[in-house]
C-alpha cells in the first residue's frame, strides 16, 4: 500500500467535505423566511425576534456564522433544531444508525442476488439465460423505488398475503427476527434499481474479462471451464463491482428519503422530509451533509480496497 496515495485520498475526501458544507451553508443561508419566524411564527414581536436571533447567533456577521458552521461539521456539532430545541446530533445519531442498517441489508441483498446472476448471464452470453436476466434487469432499472415500494406494500402487507408489517422499526435487542422482518421489505423496495445496476456491471465486466488474453490462454492450456470462470476470471471480473457498490451507496442515501417516508421507517430520510416541511434549517443542513459525508467515506473505502485488491495498481506504484 502506498502511503502517499492514501494521504492524497484523505486530503481529497477532507476537501470534499469542506466544499460541500460551504455550499450547504450558502444555499440554506439564502433561504427565504428568517429562522426567528420559523421558531416563533409570523406574529412575533420585534423584541422576541431579536432575542431568538441572539440565541441562535444569527446577529453575528455571516462569515463568523460560516466559520462556526464549517467548524461544527468537522467536530460533529450541527447546532440545535429550530423546532424542538434538541441538539441536532442527538436527533440525528440514532436515525443515522437505523438508516445504515437499512442500507447495509439492502446492499447485502443486492450483492447476494445480483453478482451470481451477473456471472450466469456472462457465462451464458447471448443465450437464453442471458436474455432472460438482461431483460429482467431492464425492468428493474426502470422501476422507481416509490413504485416498487408501493407495490410491495400493497401485495405483501395486506390480506391474503400479509407476510410483512406495514412499516416501522424494531430495535435488534427486542428480537433479531422481528428486526429483520421489519427491515426486509423496505430493503427489497430500495433494491430494484441497485440490483439491476450491479447485475449489469458484473455481467459486462465478466464478459470483458472472459474475452481477455489471459483467459484465452488458460482455456488453450486446457483449464476446465469451471475453473476458468471461478478461479481465473472471477477475481478480476468482480473488481469494478466494488466501485459500483460504493456508487450505489450514494444512490441509497438518496432513495432512503423516499423509502423511509413510505414505510414510516424512523431514519434519516424521514427526518429530512419532516425538516423540509418544517423549514428546520439545522436539521436540513445535517440531513443533507451527513449522508454526503457517509458517501464520500464509502467512495474513499472503495478506492482503498480496489487498490489493495488490484495487483496491476500495486505494481505500478511500488
Amino acid at each position: 500500500m502506498n502511503y502517499l496515495y492514501l494521504l492524497k485520498r484523505v486530503a481529497i475526501a477532507g476537501l470534499s467535505v469542506f466544499v460541500v458544507s460551504s455550499v450547504v451553508f450558502g444555499v440554506t443561508t439564502l433561504l427565504p423566511g428568517s429562522a426567528a419566524n420559523i421558531v416563533l411564527g409570523t406574529e412575533a414581536t420585534e423584541e422576541a425576534v431579536q432575542q431568538v436571533n441572539e440565541d441562535l447567533g444569527l446577529d453575528r456577521p455571516v462569515y463568523v456564522q460560516y466559520l462556526d458552521f464549517v467548524g461544527g461539521v468537522f467536530t460533529g456539532d450541527f447546532g440545535e433544531s429550530l423546532i424542538s430545541g434538541q441538539p441536532v446530533a442527538e436527533i440525528l445519531w440514532p436515525r443515522l444508525l437505523r438508516t445504515l442498517q437499512l442500507a447495509v441489508v439492502a446492499m447485502l441483498i443486492s450483492m447476494v442476488v445480483a453478482i451470481p446472476l451477473g456471472i450466469v448471464a456472462a457465462a451464458f452470453r447471448d443465450r437464453a439465460p442471458d436474455f432472460l436476466i438482461t431483460s429482467g434487469s431492464y425492468v428493474g432499472l426502470s422501476i422507481p423505488s416509490f413504485v416498487s415500494a408501493t407495490l410491495l406494500l400493497l401485495f405483501l402487507t395486506t390480506p391474503p398475503l400479509a407476510l410483512f408489517p406495514k412499516g416501522g422499526y424494531v430495535p435488534p435487542r427486542e428480537g433479531l427476527v422481528e428486526w429483520f422482518h421489519h427491515l426486509l421489505l423496505p430493503a427489497l423496495a430500495m433494491n430494484t434499481v441497485i440490483l439491476a445496476y450491479v447485475l449489469r456491471q458484473t455481467r459486462s465486466s465478466m464478459v470483458e474479462t472472459l474475452e481477455s488474453d489471459y483467459i484465452r490462454t488458460a482455456r488453450l492450456k486446457g483449464v476446465a471451464e469451471r475453473n476458468v470462470l471461478f478461479k481465473h476470471a472471477l477475481r478480476n471480473g468482480l473488481l469494478p463491482t466494488i466501485t459500483v457498490l460504493a456508487l450505489n451507496f450514494g444512490w441509497m442515501m438518496g432513495s432512503v428519503v423516499i423509502i423511509e417516508q413510505i414505510f414510516a421507517y424512523p431514519g434519516m430520510g424521514e427526518m429530512i422530509v419532516q425538516a423540509i416541511e418544517n423549514r428546520d434549517l439545522p436539521l436540513i443542513q445535517a440531513g443533507i451533509l451527513v449522508p454526503t459525508i457517509a458517501f464520500i467515506t464509502a467512495n474513499f473505502a472503495a478506492d482503498v480496497i480496489y487498490t489493495m485488491l488490484d495487483p496491476r495498481i500495486n505494481l505500478g506504484e511500488e
Partner: peptide, 16 residues
C-alpha cells in the same frame, strides 16, 4: 465534489 452529493439530496437542496 458535486458528484459526491447523492443526486436526490442535491436536488432536494436546490429545491429547498
Amino acid at each position: 465534489i458535486i458528484i459526491s452529493v447523492p443526486t436526490l439530496l442535491l436536488g432536494l437542496l436546490i429545491l429547498v
